[in-house]
Computed example of a mutant assay.
Amino acid sequence: MLKKNKEDLRVTKTLQNIRQTVVTLLIEKPLSEITVTEIAKRAQIQRKTFYLHYNSVTDVLAEFEAELSHDVETMLTEISPFSVQEFLTGLNELLCKNYAFYQEIFCRQKNSFLSTQCKNILQDSLTERLRAENKKIAPEDLKMYAEFISSGIVNIYGTWFISGQKLELADLIKKIQLIVQPLFTQIKTLKTKN
C-alpha cells in the first residue's frame, strides 16, 4: 500500500511538472510552436513519460481548461443565493491560483485564444447559473447576457494586467461589482420570455 502511495505521488508530481512546463512555454511562445521534445527537455523527463499521460501538447491545455471550467462551475454553485461580490471574489481566487499564467496571456497576447477560452468558460458557467436563477428568460437571451458580462469581465482583467496593475486587486473587484451588479439585478427581475 505504501508503495502505491509513493507511485501516486510521483505521478502527481510528474503531471504537475509537465503542466507547469507547458504554462511556462505558453508564456514564451504560441502553442503551435511548443513541441513534446521541448516539454520533456525542460521538465527533465523522457518523451515516453509525457506520452504515458498525454497524447499531445493540446491535451495538456485541454486538461487545464477542463480544470478551470470545473473550478468556475463549482465556485458558482457554492454561491447561494447568488451574490456578485462572492462571484467576483471567487473569480479573483481562481485568478490568483495561476496569476503569472493569466498575466502573460493578457500582456503578451501570443495566446489570445486562451483569453477567449477563459471568456467562454465563464460565459457557459454564467449562462447555467442565470438559467437557474430565472427560468422565465429565453435561453438565447440568457446566453447573450452571460456573453456580455463575461466578455466585459475578461476584458477588464486584460486591461488591468496590460496597464501594469496600477489599481489594487481589491479596488478592481469593487469597480467591476459597481458595473455588473445592476446587470445581474435587472436579469433576475425579467419576467417573460421575449
Rank of each mutant, 00 (worst) to 15 (best):
P182K: 02
E65P: 00
Y99G: 02
T192Y: 11
K135M: 11
G158C: 05
E168A: 15
I153Q: 04
S151K: 10
K4V: 15
S83I: 07
F184Q: 01
D141C: 11
W160H: 04
F50C: 06
L76E: 03
L122E: 11
S163E: 13
F87H: 08
V36D: 01
V180R: 04
E38I: 01
R47G: 00
S150A: 15
L61Y: 15
K188H: 09
A62H: 14
V154N: 03
S80F: 07
T12P: 00
L95P: 04
P81T: 07
Q16S: 12
I39W: 01
I153E: 01
I45Y: 03
Y102R: 03
A170I: 14
L142V: 07
T12G: 07
T185H: 05
Y99P: 02
T189A: 09
V36A: 02
Q85D: 15
Q177A: 11
S32P: 01
K166V: 10
F184H: 04
Q16V: 10
L68C: 10
I137W: 08
W160I: 03
L15R: 08
T24Y: 13
Q117T: 08
L126F: 10
I79A: 07
K166W: 00
F87W: 08
L52C: 10
Q44M: 08
T77W: 06
N55I: 02
L2Y: 14
S112I: 12
K143W: 10
Q85N: 14
E133G: 06
K97I: 01
K48Q: 14
R42T: 02
T89S: 09
E93C: 05
E93M: 06
D124R: 15
F148Y: 13
A40L: 04
I39R: 01
P182S: 03
S163A: 15
L91H: 00
Q186H: 08
V57M: 06
T14Q: 09
M1V: 14
Y99C: 04
I187S: 02
T127I: 05
E133S: 10
A66P: 01
T21D: 02
S80W: 05
N134Q: 13
I176A: 04
C118S: 13
Q181E: 11
Q181W: 06
S115D: 07
A146K: 05
F184K: 00
L95G: 04
I156Q: 07
L15C: 02
M75F: 03
V11E: 03
G90C: 04
L9K: 15
I176Y: 04
T21N: 06
Q123C: 15
Y54R: 01
T89L: 13
I18C: 04
E168Q: 08
I121M: 08
A170G: 09
S32Q: 10
R10Q: 09
T14V: 12
T185S: 08
K41G: 03
P30M: 05
A132Y: 13
K174S: 10
R129D: 07
N120P: 05
G158E: 01
D59N: 09
A170P: 02
S69C: 09
L31D: 01
P139W: 09
S56G: 08
N155R: 12
Q117M: 13
S32Y: 10
T14N: 05
N5I: 15
K175N: 07
T189P: 00
N92M: 05
T116A: 15
K135L: 13
R108T: 13
E67M: 08
R108K: 15
V84F: 08
I153N: 04
I39S: 03
N5P: 02
S112D: 13
L178W: 05
N98H: 11
N111F: 09
K48G: 11
T49R: 06
V154T: 07
K188A: 13
T49F: 07
